[in-house]
Simulated assay, not measured.
Amino acid sequence: MLETTELTAAVDRFADRLRAAPQSRLTRGAAAEGLALARELSVRAQRIEEPGTQPRIMPDAGVFAVADQLMVAGQDLAEALRTAPSGSVAEVDEAVGLVRAAAGRAGL
Rank of each mutant, 00 (worst) to 15 (best):
A10T: 10
T4M: 05
V72H: 08
V96L: 10
R28A: 13
L70D: 02
V11M: 07
P22Q: 11
E33I: 03
G107Q: 10
E50C: 12
G52E: 04
R47I: 08
R105P: 01
R82D: 03
I48A: 04
A101W: 09
G62V: 13
V63R: 09
A30M: 00
T27Q: 14
A31R: 02
A36L: 09
L98Q: 14
P55H: 04
R100A: 13
R13E: 06
Q54N: 12
L35N: 04
A30L: 03
A32D: 05
R17Y: 09
G107Y: 05
V96S: 03
L77V: 01
G104E: 09
L41R: 10
A78E: 02
A78H: 02
L98K: 07
A78R: 02
L37V: 06
T53Y: 11
R28Y: 09
R100T: 11
A15D: 03
M71P: 09
G74P: 02
L2V: 06
A101E: 12
Q69S: 14
I48C: 08
A31Q: 01
I48V: 13
G97W: 03
I48W: 06
V11T: 07
P51I: 04
A101C: 11
A65S: 15
A101S: 13
A67S: 11
A45M: 05
V72E: 10
V92P: 00
